[in-house]
């Protein structure tokens, strides 16, 4: 099997999607993902030069709503779900890391 995606690319995709894998997991993903991607090449059999893409299906112009503010009644419930909250602030770990500067 010719590998379309290299191990380094999988590592990069994982980084981009905020995931991290052990070497062993990476190697398994390498096999699985390449097996799936190899099937994608089938699309190269088609001449797509004059075909327009379909990103979504819409049967009519989407209707628009009046631009009026509305109260969201579930504010408290929404905060109740957060892992860490102080007053009406979501608490997260340090945003700026020296190593990332």
């Amino acid at each position: 099997m010719s590998e379309k995606i290299s191990l380094d690319e999988i590592k990069k995709m994982a980084q981009l999607s905020k995931l991290s894998f052990s070497q062993e997991e990476l190697e398994q993903f390498f096999v699985d993902i390449n097996s799936v991607v190899s099937h994608f090449d089938k699309l190269n059999q088609l001449d797509l030069s004059d075909v327009s893409p379909t990103s979504h299906i819409s049967w009519s112009q989407p209707p628009s709503n009046p631009d009026e503010p509305r109260e969201w009644p579930g504010r408290q419930e929404v905060f109740a779900h957060a892992p860490q909250v102080i007053d009406s602030y979501f608490i997260v770990p340090k945003v700026v890391d020296k190593q990332e500067e």
Binding site: K18, L19, S20, V92, P93, K94, V95, D97, E100
Partner: peptide
């Protein structure tokens, strides 16, 4: 986690 990025990941 010590940083936001680490927490996400």
């Amino acid at each position: 986690s010590f940083t936001l990025q680490e927490m996400y990941t």
